[in-house]
Amino acid sequence: MIQVSNLKKAYNGVTVLNIPALNILRGESFGLVGNNGAGKTTFFRLILDLIEANDGEVQIDGQKVARNESWKPFTGSFLDEGFLIDFLTPGEYFKFVGKLYNKSEGDIALFLESMEEFFNGEINGSKKLIREFSKGNQKKIGIAAALLGDPQILILDEPFTALDPSSQIRLKRLLNDLQTRQGITMLISSHDLNHVTEVCKRIVVLEKGDVVKDIATGEDTLKELESYFAV
């Protein structure tokens, strides 16, 4: 579904990402781990056409993403607060996003109801503006908005950080559900090796822009990763 070929990104002559070839299949759950500065966010931004590659390209469904809009209708993403419109209330924001994906008010209400457990009753119907919510709740709003358009591809950058323990568990359940029931292609980066191995069937380790490991998740994966990152 997503093909990466010869992708290179450099800032001021320093290469921050260099992926010769990478294929992500439809329905695959793809976990991206690596220390700070490894290039995780840069990779996601390249896939989402937020920055320009110095060389190579990313293709979704055989079409390159750069300066193209055909991937947008079926791709949901949340990388950081820059994806939220923080002066709206959650209700207004969801309505706005829903409209972008041709959802009716009924569809949106139904969707938000299904999210009620994940929101822990703190978001739906609130009159607060998004900027007044805690970081954790902002993250939940962003993730929900990414899911609102029934995406075939979901891209989340560190979705577990800033969430409380119960919400982390709920999010894991939600993501696993989406995989098994709807077969969404999922790209998730995380610093938490536990979570990412539980959610993703394939783990890629980035280091200083290079892919150093590409493993199918098995029983020993967590140990392998832990020993890799051990100092």
């Binding site: 937020l50 809009e69 947008k72 791709t75 820059g82 994806f83 419109i85 994906y101």
Partner: peptide, 14 residues
């Protein structure tokens, strides 16, 4: 500016 990434990635044709 504060939500420009959102504008670019959501389903909004330029």
């Amino acid at each position: 500016s504060a939500h420009f990434d959102g504008i670019l990635t959501k389903n909004i044709p330029t």
